[in-house]
Write a protein that binds this DNA or RNA. Structure first.
Lengths: 204, 204, 204, 204
DNA sequence: GATGAATGAGCATTCATTCAT
DNA sequence: TATGAATGAATGCTCATTCAT
């Protein structure tokens, strides 16, 4: 048992080191030897736990998605109101990236680097994550609360892109706004659109 | 005159080749010699027009932004209605990326790769592009058409992220939707939010 | 222990290969890959022991100077007579360059190539070597054996230049003389000048 | 006629530029394009006057040697006394290198760089230069003024090496002596050796 | 399992030289 | 003659990966 635990510890150590290094230097400018040094292991040791440098990024991503998935499920647990669910999903996402910047930067920026990931890597866990939001939307549509003409998958993608970009902007310190303000804005738009008045039947 | 023209032609040739190669292989997996071969010039010739490989990406981006900026300005020219302006901006963006996939992929994916670009490269033209949308929102707020509590910069960033992500999704062929459908969805949400009913005074 | 020894062995192997290659082709025409091949190691291995190609030359020089310094000190050890010391210094120098032509050629010719060496590299060990001769001259002056109007540093530089040039001439096979003959000539001149008669008081 | 003159002017311009650049950067770090720029001509123009970069150094050297040879011959012209001739030769050499440092640096340092020069280039004019000194020594021997056991060629080589090294030392600013002091020291030694007393017959 | 010395494929960049104008 | 844009061969160095210990 302790062997398995020790193995897991070392794997975590390496992933933690990789997170730090990838976030600071970017995937292509990170050296395996630097990750090894940061993790306090020999270069060769990394290859006992990971197939190669790419695998380090894949596993980093999958581990993270696991945590994110269980986190968002817990957050949504017990919530029944659709509007509330949507708010929680958004808030959870931004709190998440805020709580671990290194990790967030990798998910947001570095992951797009390797063609392995964007073109060859199917990325089922990311799909699962988006599906959670899509399911909320679908549920809302089934309940008649959300407009039927909305495509749930399109909206979840769009939402993810919006949140991601906002985080990136905030991360670079160029966006002069808080993530709380970002949440409020996104909530507001999803709730009632951009405009003050709308051509709803009640107006006539 | 022909010297200047020839010079410009060769520069364009190289940028076109770089676009193709970067889009297919990704920046870090693209070899300068392959770009040179594609452009029909010698390796060394590239360095007569560009400082280095990175510069190729920067100039590619700047050239493209110039075209995008003038394109969107032309598209918006003569349009006065705020809702219409917003629609045009969105439609223009998606038509643009649709019309040149290689270019779009670079702008969307590859540009985020180099730390040079994301961390050190200030990227004023991209800011200008977003500012166009932010200005429309601001104008709408001044006219009282758009909600005052919306932060124009946050919304323009979020919109860009949403459009970008949708394009990426569509590009990978995994999104089973057309870009037209994407436009409709985004329009719809911005116009009236996600929900069928809203807590507008008229309903009670 | 064996690790340290192995490390030292490999370093020596590489330096020996570098000596051979530099001597035959000259520093600027020597390829790192050729040195690696001669040393029976991979190209990259060289960079585990040396910072870069220049460093190879610097360390080659410093290692050699260490050996030369201890050699000449040993040779002079126990010798008290000034004339004898001077003779030993000269003889030692020429025997040295004669015993390892490759090394001698590098010290003599190649070292002057890189501006790093001539302009930026302070070269303290070479100074130490010359100082040994300067000290002998100084000692002779203190004892009243050597002319007081002689500048010890000027003479040691001049002597070094003379010996060096003679070696070079001999090396190229154009000088039709032996190094022994060279020693005799230099000795003779230092001892009593070029001329048969001198304006010494005893002549009148 | 003017064509020939113009041609000669441009050739001189280029050689002057090469002198400056070679002296400052060293032969291998000098770029043909920089020499062209300094000379105010196009890169290609250099190849109308010189076979290649090496040829630039060869011709630079040969032109210089021509001037040096006629200079030293003029200096010695009319002088009959052997001791005086030797003094003049030495003084002329050091005045020469002092008067044009760039040129002197090339002759002294850069010329040794290219294996072309040291190993393949016979360098007859340099031999001629040394021969002038050797002839003086020979003449002295024939007159019975200079020791018969001296090898004239060895001595002239040695003298050249000594003067060269002194100049180099002085050039680098590390030798805290004037070239005049250097001349006095060399003169003194050649005249009467290093030592105060010698085992000349008169002493017993 | 762990190490880290050794490997060697891979590649951006330089620059002497050419040649069409 | 003169130009200078174009060439493309040449090479130092990096770093992911391996494997003997």
């Amino acid at each position: 048992m302790s062997g398995v635990k020790a193995r897991n510890d070392k794997r975590k150590q390496i992933l933690a080191a990789a997170t730090r290094v990838f976030a600071r230097k970017g995937f292509y400018h990170s050296k395996v030897s630097e990750i090894a040094a940061q993790a306090g292991v020999a270069d060769g040791t990394i290859y006992l736990y990971f197939k190669n440098k790419d695998d380090l990024l894949v596993q980093l991503f999958e581990d993270t998605m696991d945590r994110i998935l269980s986190g968002v499920r817990t957050a949504l647990d017990g919530c029944t109101e659709i509007r509330q669910k949507i708010h929680l999903f958004i808030a959870h996402h931004l709190q998440l990236v805020q709580s671990d910047r290194d990790l967030a930067e990798i998910i947001t920026v570095e992951l797009r680097q390797s063609h392995k990931f964007m073109k060859e890597y199917a990325n089922p866990k990311f799909g699962e994550y988006l599906q959670i939001f899509a399911n909320i939307v679908q549920e809302g549509q089934d309940l008649g609360v959300i407009k039927a003409e909305i495509n749930a998958r399109v909206v979840s993608r769009a939402l993810f892109g919006a949140l991601n970009e906002l985080f990136l902007y905030w991360l670079m310190g160029r966006g002069k706004f808080t993530l709380d303000e970002a949440i409020r804005n996104i909530d507001e738009i999803l709730l009632g659109g951009l405009f003050v008045e709308h051509t709803s039947p009640c107006h006539r």
